[in-house]
Design a protein around this nucleic acid. Structure first.
Lengths: 325, 325
DNA sequence: TTGAAAGCGATACCAG
DNA sequence: CTGGTATCGCTTTCAA
């Protein structure tokens, strides 16, 4: 790749001048500029970001920390982040952490070693492990986070329960997401509130993780322990799906014998039949808005909203019974 | 972050010595080493990769080019790549190109500007657009590729057709993936061969892309144009799923009235009921092996296999009828 | 309006 | 064994 020096030489000016034109900064005479532009064209020059980064102590790279990229929620979030970030002139370094704090710390160190401009994190507690770099927390947001994009989990929990409540539930089971995840708690609280208000009895079933592997076990457990339940609020769509599969296998009619509502609205949820009713989380937007917010922080632009809350919405598909009025 | 200079000062040695110990290269006296190690500890020093990269003209970053990260095949591939790469001391820059050549070229330039060590590409034709950087092509591999990890699409196509052939097909439709994708062609050829050998009549239905959005339209089209077909070989699981959904909606019994086989074995395919039978592509391994191969190229290690072919396998689930012997 | 030169943080050559 | 120093490619004073 051509360097600024070669450009300078070809253009017959100094590197300083070249620098000025590529950064559009400082005075440059018209014909100097012309010559430089021409030389750049000729040599197909583009500035080395590494050298820039070294000098600026800040690169055009953003670290993206994900709990598990194989969990279908995160690719969409990543896509949103990537879209925003690349429009704003940044690129993403992918940090897939597998719910492992050690790996997260490794990545934070790598990010730092690479003069990362900021980090976008969908894993909890990253902010405690990062000092100086701007950080935006996504999705699983604790109340202590400064900059964050998240959804209203409490309301989501309420909406899910409300959808159930309006559909003649007899016995409902709430599958509770991992305790460490704050959103689980919020959703649960929201659901419980609605169920209580409607005097609907419910049981809780704790699930271990949001990982794809744990869902089957949970579904089995559900049918073992709550054989008589006729309504279930699943921790997320993957669980909802596992439940559905198991129910269909057992010849249980959905939604008449068992109605299910999930959470997230993962891409495949619409591709099923019966379709999984769910609370849609705007994963793409979370990533997109988060990236925008982060870039503002990085560039010291004014930010009006430090914590952005995105709405969730109820998606009705075939896994819920008809609403009774 | 502490610099090598500060370490040198604290340890009372020169930067050269510090450099030698952190790289484990060249002679270093025992107590010099001790002092340096201690200083490193004290200052929590870790070398700045940007400075290294500038000098070496080569970073510890690897570019990952994906056609569409929202397509559930690629997160798994990415996960495999990430696992391998991070074990070998590299990190990934994520390049999501959305089947857009311009964006791909942008990323290749960005990669270059960042002194990328190599690129891992699951989009076609990247090798034509890249000159000097080591490159490993994944999954959708043309015969011209030097370094590649892929599966045997011809065999996969045969296996899919074979599975159908053994299950009393009456009229079969092969959904053909996008023409630009070489694997589509291979699979088709394999399937046709088997069908011909068994004297089974078939029709072809061309699909536009592997994108999530196009599948519903294709499914509608299928039921419009091939209402009487009783067997279908879908381009991939997403199409298979769309077909299944549409069939169930229309009250068509699966697999008795319509049997379906997909391709890929996407994570959700096992979570359905009826489960989607499919040809499993080892997406994770493709990513993993690809990353390993790339790292060997980068480090000029001997590579025994330049083009690695991974086996596909038939996964039988409920979307196929019983086999007749 | 321009250029010379210092410096970002590390590596590696060469001398001692 | 160790240290001084040029160098990687670029940005940014500072002087001219």
């Amino acid at each position: 790749m051509a360097t600024i020096k070669e450009v300078a030489k070809l253009a017959g000016v100094s590197v300083a001048t070249v620098s000025r034109v590529i950064n559009n900064k400082g005075y440059v005479g018209v014909d100097s500029r012309k010559k430089v532009e021409h030389a750049i064209e000729q040599l197909d020059f583009s500035p080395n970001e590494v050298a820039r980064s070294l000098f600026q102590k800040k690169s055009k790279l953003i670290g993206l920390l994900l709990p598990d990229i194989a969990n279908p929620f995160f690719p969409l979030l990543a896509k949103g982040a990537e879209d925003a970030v690349s429009q704003l002139g940044y690129s993403l370094i992918l940090g897939n952490v597998q719910d492992d704090v050690t790996k997260e710390e490794e990545y934070l160190k790598i990010f730092e070693q690479n003069n990362i401009a900021g980090v976008l994190s969908a894993v909890q507690g990253s902010s405690k492990r990062t000092k100086t770099t701007p950080l935006v927390t996504l999705d699983r947001v604790e109340s202590s986070e400064q900059f964050a994009v998240h959804t209203d989990d409490y309301q989501g929990g309420m909406m899910a329960a409300q959808a159930i409540a309006e559909r003649t539930p007899n016995q409902v089971v709430i599958m509770v997401g991992p305790k460490e995840i704050p959103s689980s708690f919020e959703r649960l609280a929201g659901s419980i509130r609605v169920l209580k208000e409607n005097n609907i009895p419910y049981s809780l079933l704790q699930t271990k993780s949001f990982r794809l592997e744990d869902t089957d076990a949970a579904a089995q457990l559900f049918f073992k322990d709550y054989a008589t339940a006729d309504s279930v609020i699943a921790s997320n769509d993957v669980y909802g799906l596992a439940l559905m599969r198991e129910a269909l296998k057992r010849g249980i009619d959905i939604p008449n014998e068992l109605q299910i509502i999930g959470y997230d609205d993962m891409p495949f949820s619409s591709l099923l039949f019966p379709g999984l009713s769910t609370i849609a989380q705007p994963a793409y937007e979370i990533g997109y808005k988060g990236a925008e917010l982060l870039c503002k922080c990085i560039e010291n632009k004014p930010v009006t909203e430090k914590r952005i809350q995105l709405p969730v919405k109820l998606i009705l598909r075939e896994s819920l019974r008809e609403k009774v009025l």
